[in-house]
Design a protein around this nucleic acid. Sequence first.
DNA 1: CGGTGGAAAGCTAACTTTCCACCGGTGCCTTAGT
Length: 495
Amino acid sequence: MKIEEVLYNHFKFRTFKLGQKEIISSILDGQHTMAMLPTGTGKSLCYQLPGYLLKGQVIIVSPLLSLMQDQVEQMKIRGEKRVVAINSFLSWPDKRQILNNLNNYKFIYISPEMLGLDHVLDRLKRLKIGLFVIDEAHCISQWGFDFRPEYRKLGAIREKVGNPLTLALTATATSDVVRDIVSSLHLEDWKEHIFSVDRPNISMKVETLNEVLDKQRRVVELVEYLQGPGIIYFSSKKLAEETAELLKSNGNRKVMAYHGGLEQESRILIQQQFLKGELDVICATSAFGMGINKEDVRFVIHYHMPLQIESYLQEIGRAGRDGEASVAILLYVPGDEQLPLQLIDNELPSEAQIDWLFEWMGEHGHSMLAQSEADIRSLAGFTDTQWRLIFDYIINLDLDQTSLKEGLNNFKIFIQNRNTIKRKKIAEVKNWTQSTECRREKILKYFDEQKKMEITNCCDRCGIQFEQYNKREKLDQEPSFQFHWKDYLSAILKK
DNA sequence: CGGTGGAAAGCTAACTTTCCACCGGTGCCTTAGT
């Protein structure tokens, strides 16, 4: 069957979007594939379509539970019943039932953590896997070292399930990150399909203010002025909440804050309200965004600077998916880089902490580590992330082969390298805000690309007609239908 | 680093100034013989 027929029969599309056909053909040729497509261009089709032509199961490693649930829902709506998500939303009888009958499914979504469990992996080993997909593959590089170490184990897992044909998908990866992803997955012979990260309809602007307090005033002005809907990104949950309240008290009723500290249920609710146009503005942390498919976001404001250019691009890329003119504004105050620097300090253990721990191990033996966890953590003041990183390193340390001292030094070097890389990335963001070059050109260079054409309203360095983003008229219409939140939530959470 | 909130100090009673400690994104997973 021709792939166009499959496209129509299963997805009801007549034509492919940019890049889809190349990526699908590469997979069907049996090539491991590393694909980069700009945000919002239909990445899931790149593995769903081949699924209908390949023998065996498609395993999709996905970073977020909500993303998995969403994809499963969408596939079910489309009429595909052989789809399942294996994650902690499942009750244990359901989980056992599903694991015992994996052969009944064609598309299996799973988190990297779940994939790392032996009893789950044993079941997967018995399948004939047609395609192994890593969705949002930049997470391997971005989260894999410290925040979610299971991401670093995907290469070993791939080998355990018999080196299946593999597709890694992402929207933003520098050439370094692409290399990192490929080597981490232990892919030896692969094909790259990299499409431009550029989104010409998003214009970029940096506003330098004198004082931190000016930001509040400026955000209120901008929300008042700009055509919505929009997203405002913060690096602090508290400030996101406070600013949402401030905007509300200024008459913008349809504003909500969104961050990782909220209950799962409120998060889904707020996200869905935003998608359905019942909210104008979201004051969010970096928790908000992955898997948000809203076509008409008109502006993205950065109240704080992101920790790396990749994150910036991901975040502004949530604007203008419909192709219409949209604007990204970053507010900068000298000294703003201190907050991200502080955040990475909380992520990585300090030299003193590492020394202390190895001394402790010298005295008590490393086998005591797991049972004394609580004591050690409170004595040295390790954060969750720091501890996981340390623990993961030490349990994998072969003390028959390596001395404790050697282990200590290697670990210190590892941490130093991580620290240097993270600091460098923050410096790159800062440089970008200070640079007098074209904003777009500078970002494209970072991704080894060149600006190919002149763009109207490119960036503040090239010149912007800012009035274009003004709201022309305020529409205050109530939604014309009633959405049943309760039913929706129970469907998503309990299924 | 920079802001914040609470306590102490200053100096004469009800309020201001100074000081100090603290905080600051991201998410999975926690039960078993076939």
